[in-house]
Write a protein that binds this DNA or RNA. Structure first.
Lengths: 346, 346
DNA sequence: TTGAAAGCGATACCAT
DNA sequence: ATGGTATCGCTTTCAA
């Protein structure tokens, strides 16, 4: 069964079904989209023929002639470490009910790629586009606006919104991270992890934390960051550098939980007591964060909720609902890695 | 900018560009696909018009008239916990070079859903389909075969293959898990975690382990499993049950690392020494597995490689290459949770 | 309840 | 180098 057969092989079309049953294409089409406008007996024969020939409708043709295309473009910045995988997961199952298909693109935090991929996705005439973030290259904004379809920006709500957004206020997350550390008595904060030029969310969190530190009259946050993907190894390496160059630091804000895992490893290797001597807070609530030791204090974004609300927003917008931006809550999960005093929580 | 404008809004077409520049659609089309067959000056004006109007080609139309559709259907069984996210990631970036777009579907281990989703994906006339596993409902196999396009089955190679497969031999993985435990001196094995009726890979691993246990003359493997998604909480719960009902067990094979995280937690709560009294091995090599304590012995599948090879196989098959199944290696990563004697490895 | 015919927006072949 | 025209498979009026 090679590709060479492609020209010879005749994939069944509506017309071939029609011919076989002895009706017009039209009737077959209606048997599919509006079954009750076709005689029961005829409908039965049509269905039988479709089943027998393994007929699969050609939605390229359908989308071209009809009004809607039933594709939803989903643009993420990464799929590593579940960061957005579960958003995509929930989003997708929400769209499934309406037979909307997800077309996926991954920019890997590269703005040129983002322009290219958005263009590419729009070329499939999607019914809507869901995209991570609210900070895009101007061309992306222009293209998305010009497309005239609903655009849902996910994950972040802190900025100019094209149409509708479902996300979190990242500055307040950073502020909460710093405030928690300060409340636990830490005073010399560091920020460790990947901090890509185009990860505006991470930058917003860092700025939120910086503002909180300044407000508390503490020295400014020390940064040990890299442009690469976050990972335990990166966290470990950066933390070693940090400890050597800035021994006065007594608390580390990690840009993601996996980075924090590496930071914990480095600290333990060097015999630093956690949380006594030094505290560590992460971001993202990785599934393992309650299982490392000490267990990791972190921020838990409600990814399921973002995915679900995005699906709902898409459906609403497609059905002429008005744009409506939603700020989604997150939660500070206090665990052992920062808890010095007797606190609340798990 | 509402959807109501949709009828009024005129998305630019080849024809509108052509009219604006004063040439035929044909010329504009060639300016895109074969630029050197169009006068430089004219091409410049055409490009300018496209840029100005934010023209995005309609690939539904292109796919309908042309031979190929540039869509690759990707069907996974889950997106949770990175199990397949990084395969999708690598696969996608491999396809990007050829401007192939990924259309994603997630069956969540539901065979009815699988039939529905495969049908749905085929309706977009993809150039190829990549799908997790080699065990599918008969209807899925029938549809995929009838489509006449390249089908790449991923992750598993242990069974009937439709066209081309890129995956691992899961039975040998299970055998290696058991063999390792036995070599470390464990004798009463248990299998803990999610074991869905439709997760044939997990079943193959379990059977591989059972065969190894039988071959070693040891008592058969005790099972504590559930149908739900694997998670630390599930692992913790099942392990507590296991310890109460089968106290003689001295080694646990977990169906995934996240389940193992929970198992470790349960064991520590009960004061069981790991690996002295009881050993734990996982599957999947989660990014946190080297960071929990004790660090987790596990199997590391080469997900990047599977994604990359799948992309290559798709491109090869599209270009008339022959079907070619590849068995991808995995690695036993020995860490603290099973190492009783002085072993090799990290 | 059913059918005929005109698009949808591109591509591809054949002329010019 | 450029244009005319049929075509892809379906949806959507409009008639019958």
């Amino acid at each position: 069964m090679g590709i060479a057969d492609k020209e010879t092989r005749n994939v069944p079309t509506l017309a071939s079904i029609a011919e076989r049953v002895g009706v017009s294409v039209n009737t077959v089409s209606r048997a599919l989209r509006a079954p009750n406008t076709v005689r029961v007996e005829l409908r039965r024969r049509i269905n039988a023929a479709m089943e027998e020939l393994n007929y699969v409708p050609n939605r390229l043709a359908g989308g071209l002639s009809g009004t809607r295309s039933d594709i939803v473009g989903v643009v993420v910045t990464s799929l590593y470490y579940s960061e957005f995988a579960s958003i995509v997961d929930t989003l997708q199952s929400g769209l499934l009910e309406q037979d909307l298909q997800v077309m996926l693109a991954n920019t890997r935090y590269n703005p040129d790629q983002e322009v290219r991929l958005v263009r590419s996705i729009l070329s499939w005439r999607p019914a809507a586009v869901a995209i991570i973030g609210v900070d895009h290259p101007p061309k992306v904004v222009e293209l998305l606006k010009a497309s005239g379809i609903p655009i849902i920006e996910m994950w972040d709500v802190g900025g100019e919104i094209i149409d509708t957004a479902v996300g979190m206020d990242h500055a307040s997350i950073g502020a909460a991270q710093a405030a928690h550390l300060i409340a636990e008595g830490y005073a010399r904060l560091a920020f460790v992890g990947s901090l890509r030029e185009n990860d505006r969310r991470a930058q917003k969190r860092l700025r939120g934390a910086e503002a909180a530190v300044v407000a508390a009259g503490l020295p400014e946050i020390v940064r040990f960051t890299a442009q690469q993907n976050g990972s335990p190894d990166l966290g470990e390496r950066l933390t070693h550098e940090l400890l050597e160059q800035r021994p006065e630091v007594d608390a580390i804000v990690c840009n993601s939980d996996v980075v924090a895992f590496g930071a914990l490893r480095a600290l333990k290797r060097r015999g630093r007591r956690i949380p006594g001597e030094i505290g560590v807070i992460g971001f993202g609530d990785n599934e393992a964060s309650s299982c490392v030791s000490p267990s990791l204090t972190t921020i838990r974004p409600d990814r399921e909720r973002i995915g679900k609300l995005t699906a709902e927003a898409i459906l609403a917008r497609i059905n002429d609902g008005a744009p409506k931006t939603t700020v989604v809550d997150w939660e500070l999960i206090i665990r052992e890695s920062t808890r010095r005093r007797d606190s609340q929580n798990q």
